[in-house]
Amino acid sequence: MLVSLAMLLPLGVSVAGPVGTANAAFDPNFGYDFWVESDMGGIKSRIFRAADGNRNRVVYALDGMRARNDLNGWEIETNVARALTAANINVVMPVGGESSFYADWNAPSTWGPGDLGSSTGSSNGSSGLGSSDAAADVDGKANTYRWETFLTQQLPRALAEREGFRSTRNGVFGLSMGGSAALTLAAYYPRQFSFAGSYSGFLNNSAPGMREALRVAMVSAGGFNIDAMAPPWGPQWLRMDPFVFAPMLKANNTRLWIASGSGLPGPGDVSDALGVVQAVPLEALALANTRAFEVRMGTIGAGNAHYDYPATGVHNWKNWEDQVNRMIPDLSRNIG
């Protein structure tokens, strides 16, 4: 499987990024920009208000590995914001963070001359709030990624102060890269996040071959150096592995929604042969990771997760949107 992925990635496919495109959903009159200063500079999020006007029920929607600097993929490719707001849930969509895993990195992702395995440099500079160039300036190369700090300190504080949003018992969900990040945030910040969802997530990052698979993926998705994120197999790397920190999720009693497709294309999953070739192995790898996480949770007696494995489904937005729609009632019961 990893050999197949290594062959696919140079074609422009990311191990933790979306394949396939849903109908564009962006509506400038629906959500609004919310800029917050961070250790990385000015970061934009998109906010969508709950239909009933409440400020207590909040969910964060995390993007995949190929996150763009203009809009979050959930807004570009799906209509989940409308479904969530109709369920009286406020939606926060952070923008940017390509290949970041929404983590605090060790250093900017710069490469040593002729050495793709080195990482040098230090954080420098920031962009002003609201600057049109701000997202490009906080891409983890000019600055050191500090996404965990942003999502757990700077953003919730600004949302509380300026929007009146509750900063405890929030939800968080994500696809692929964002799925593993959602579980990481819930594990280490249980007061902030009482619910976490992972769709097609990579939840066993310390399995044999996974780090090198992710290394190739991150080079493909923006040219990022995984060694700048965390050294191999050290405490910082293990801290990011849901398989490793599963006991914390059990102890926190965090409500989890864990899902992955079967890797078999269903109706409308992909529109061409190349799409099948790309999306099937990616989802198969996510499925293997997700099943391993389920077994791990079972061995420690954790009963706080719902697992969802549709009979068909590959690595694309259609299936991730379907998961959100299925998840909404469970999310609604476990936040606020």
Rank of each mutant, 00 (worst) to 15 (best):
F202E: 15
L203Y: 07
L203Q: 07
L203W: 05
L203G: 04
N204K: 09
N205A: 07
N205R: 13
S206W: 04
M210E: 11
R211Q: 02
A213P: 01
R215K: 15
R215D: 11
A217D: 07
V219D: 07
V219C: 03
V219K: 08
S220W: 02
S220F: 05
A221L: 08
A221I: 13
A221Q: 09
G223Q: 06
G223E: 12
F224E: 09
F224G: 02
A228T: 03
A230P: 02
P231V: 13
W233T: 14
Q236A: 15
Q236M: 12
W237N: 14
L238P: 06
R239Y: 08
M240D: 11
M240R: 07
M240H: 10
M240V: 03
D241C: 03
F243A: 09
F243M: 08
V244E: 14
V244H: 15
V244W: 09
V244A: 13
V244D: 15
V244G: 14
A246M: 04
A246G: 04
A246E: 02
P247F: 05
M248R: 10
K250N: 07
K250F: 04
K250T: 03
A251Y: 03
N253D: 10
N253Y: 12
N253L: 08
N253I: 11
N253E: 11
R255H: 10
W257A: 03
I258S: 01
I258N: 02
A259V: 11
S260M: 01
G261R: 00
G263M: 00
G263D: 00
G263P: 00
L264P: 03
L264K: 09
L264H: 14
G268M: 07
G268H: 04
G268A: 12
D269A: 09
D269T: 02
D269E: 15
V270W: 01
S271K: 15
D272C: 09
A273V: 10
A273D: 12
A273M: 14
L274V: 14
V277R: 10
V277A: 12
V280D: 01
V280Y: 00
V280L: 03
V280F: 01
